[in-house]
């Protein structure tokens, strides 16, 4: 564990807490893409298949349970909770996210570390996470005004993978033959997808103005 990865995990955890706070405090999930939440639940369910087989550390197992349970709980809330489900922008959240799932499956079958059940699912989860934010970014552009908590949620969700890139650079130079090119490439694409969001987020923060994404 290094400081970059810890910072990344804490930022990721914080983004989940901000999202839960937003839904709980405003009793609304307007501006949140259910499709991105479903993709993230799928990412965690397919990446943490080793939760019960490989024990890395208490921290690792606890964080896996937290990410799986929070993402499933948010999807349940947005789909079935009588109060919040009505506030979901169903007609704005129209990204065809099953295409992202299909492309990730094909990529995982083509590019993986080893052709085993675990590794193909792991590669699938890495590719899917790289594009999982797309429905959310499209929804933000469509819904115009972005409330603070939603903006912070997306910001921290994007920042966590940037910390992971620093972690991979650190591990590359400190651990011999550490190579995770699947994570590196996907992580770079994932962070790059946030580039314009980060730009508008910075501008809104600098001008102390409401976050506005151009349509």
């Amino acid at each position: 564990m290094n400081i970059f990865r810890l910072a990344g995990d804490m930022t990721h955890l914080f983004s989940v807490l901000v999202l839960l706070l937003k839904i709980y405090a405003t009793k609304s999930c307007s501006g949140i893409s259910l499709k991105t939440q479903e993709l993230y639940a799928l990412v965690f369910l397919t990446r943490y298949l080793d939760l019960f087989t490989d024990f890395i550390s208490v921290y690792n197992s606890v964080m896996k349970v937290v990410f799986i349970s929070s993402s499933v709980a948010i999807v349940w809330c947005m789909r079935y909770h009588p109060l919040t489900r009505r506030t979901y922008d169903k007609d704005l959240d129209t990204f065809r996210h099953y295409i992202l799932v299909g492309v990730s499956i094909i990529l995982a079958l083509l590019f993986h570390d080893r052709f085993t059940f675990r590794e193909v699912f792991w590669a699938f989860s890495i590719y899917l996470e790289a594009v999982a934010i797309l429905p959310q970014l499209v929804l933000l552009q469509r819904s115009g005004n972005v409330d603070n908590l939603t903006g912070q949620y997306v910001f921290f969700l994007g920042a966590y993978r940037a910390f992971y890139i620093l972690n991979w650079i650190y591990r590359y130079f400190t651990e011999n033959h550490y190579s995770r090119w699947i994570s590196w490439l996907a992580g770079f694409v994932q962070t790059a997808l946030y580039a314009d969001f980060f730009y508008y987020y910075f501008v809104s923060w600098k001008n102390n103005a409401k976050l506005q994404l151009p349509a």
Binding site: R5, D9, H12, R47, D50, D54, I56, N60, M63, K64, F67, D113, R114, W122, Y164, N167, H177, Y178, S179, R180, S183
Partner: peptide
């Protein structure tokens, strides 16, 4: 070799 390394990252 690197491929047998378990995925120790989240």
């Amino acid at each position: 070799d690197t491929e047998t390394v378990p995925h120790d990252e989240l």
